[in-house]
Design a protein around this nucleic acid. Structure first.
Length: 106
DNA sequence: AGGTTGACTCACC
DNA sequence: TGGTGAGCCAACC
């Protein structure tokens, strides 16, 4: 499997109402330093795919530039947003995998 | 081969 | 929070 697909699989399991950061996904994918590649992969991802790519934000909760529907989609799912469309990571960051010992890859 | 760019992150103010 | 600077790495000129 290629890197993109790994990223997609991880993104696909982000639960509704939660968000993950690029760095988090990069880490889970086995390449902690490739947060930017995650961004590339998602940017390259087909818009019609069913991936919840709107649930991916950067380390401070910033949503993707030029995609002003993203905060709306998140709010629609119940994700708390702070001022200027910053996701409240303290309450809405996806933590299930990080805190558990579950294996999600291979 | 080398320089730029970017849906990034971290350390420091 | 927010700005700056450095590190990061694949994709593109």
């Amino acid at each position: 499997m290629n890197y993109e697909q790994t990223v997609y699989e991880i993104v696909a399991m982000i639960p509704r109402g939660k968000v993950a950061t690029y760095g988090q996904i990069a880490f889970l994918s086995g390449y902690p330093k490739r947060a930017r590649m995650v961004g590339l992969a998602l940017a390259n991802a087909p818009a019609r795919s069913k991936l919840p790519c709107h649930r991916v934000v950067n380390s401070v909760g910033r949503t993707a530039p030029g995609w002003n529907d993203q905060p709306l989609l998140l709010a629609q799912e119940g994700v708390r947003l702070k001022a200027n469309n910053l996701v409240d990571l303290d309450h809405c960051q996806w933590e299930g995998i990080l805190l558990g010992d579950t294996t999600i890859l291979d």
